[in-house]
Design a protein around this nucleic acid. Structure first.
Lengths: 196, 196
DNA sequence: TTTTTCGCGTACCTTCGGTATGTGAAACGA
DNA sequence: TCGTTTCACATACCGAAGGTACGCGAAAAA
């Protein structure tokens, strides 16, 4: 998929920018990181960056999409390890919790994402990546009659927000037991909507 | 509390900066608003701004504190209208939901806040203002034996995050029934922790 | 009335995102 | 093989925005 010296070099540059951008954005936040830093770390110049991306915000958008995809993949994998719809939901939620607690993904996904791109665009990306899985899992349970019939969107948002904030809190927490407490409370929340 | 021409003028300037800063930050977001705009709207110059505040971020901090205080006051008032601890919790949550759905407060409190000040400082301010009420309400219920004994902090974070995200979603939503659906789902979540 | 304080305006500096343009090597056609 | 075109990227430059140093004039203090 990368034949020719040119195409290969192009991809290498693009990936270097994405990698260093991601590393720096995660480490120090979007506004604190200058483009000069990113291109230096990637071993190129601003010309290369603007050749590959529309600007600083666009580079961030690409980084965010990458991070969200990784989290979504982990969540999907965790859910797919189970057959039962309810177990899939719980497993997916717990995996999301741990995946988005990692400091390399957290600031990009949960803090800078909405501020840089605006909440609505952030939400669209979030929906396309991980929140969609959550909505599908809930819809499946409602379909099966194992969850009370109700609009899926409001519940999805409540749970998504709860997990996002909990992940932020867990990352800043020092108590090792906090994760277990959050998991317990989260499962109890989910149980509230279980029927049958 | 403002005797002397000087002290009165000082307060007037400070309030003008806060007012215009808040208006513009809420309208177009922190990064999109320049200091020149704020000081022009307030009828002063940058010299005045830097005399009263440490910089752009510090002005934002003051604005955020003001917004959070207003929301906290509304929540506290809604809760205090009731005697029963459980009703107080539910009323406070619902008031928080509507108060933080208002576009004038939302972007500052929920989107730019964490990004500009960093999540931990944002969380400290949030805790001092409204999340504290939530934690106290939950603690009271646990004390009374009407809620399952459990660590208060994890549950507080889950609920706080759920409401924040729901408020963001509601503000962008067009369906009038969405608010009712969120309220229903939220109450059901709360009920999950009720005992007795 | 003299002196001091201080709230704030003015001018300037630096940094940073963004753009316009140049360049050299790879791809391509004859 | 050789001229031509393409294109990935570098260089140089620009405007705007946050921040700072300094001065002024009126109110407060002595």
């Amino acid at each position: 998929m990368a034949d020719g010296v040119r195409a290969r070099q192009r991809e290498a540059t693009r990936r270097a920018l994405l990698r260093e951008g991601r590393r720096l954005f995660a480490l120090r936040g979007y506004t604190a990181v200058g483009l000069a830093e990113v291109v230096d770390a990637a071993g190129v110049t601003k010309g290369a960056l603007y050749h590959h991306f529309g600007g600083k915000a666009d580079l961030f958008r690409a980084v965010l999409a990458e991070v969200q995809q990784e989290v979504a993949d982990r969540v999907a994998a965790a859910a797919d390890a189970h057959e039962d719809s309810w177990t899939r939901l719980v497993a997916g939620c717990q995996e999301f919790l741990t995946a988005s607690t990692a400091p390399q993904t957290q600031r990009i996904m949960l803090v800078d994402g909405p501020a840089v791109l605006g909440w609505s665009e952030w939400r669209a990306l979030d929906e396309a990546a991980s929140a969609r899985h959550l909505a599908e899992a809930i819809a499946a349970l409602v379909e099966e009659g194992r969850m009370a019939p109700q609009p899926v969107a409001p519940l999805t948002r409540l749970l998504s927000g709860a997990m996002n904030e909990a992940a932020l809190w867990l990352a800043a927490s020092t108590e090792a037991t906090d994760l277990e407490h959050v998991r317990t409370a989260l499962v109890r929340m989910l149980e509230a909507f279980r029927v049958g």
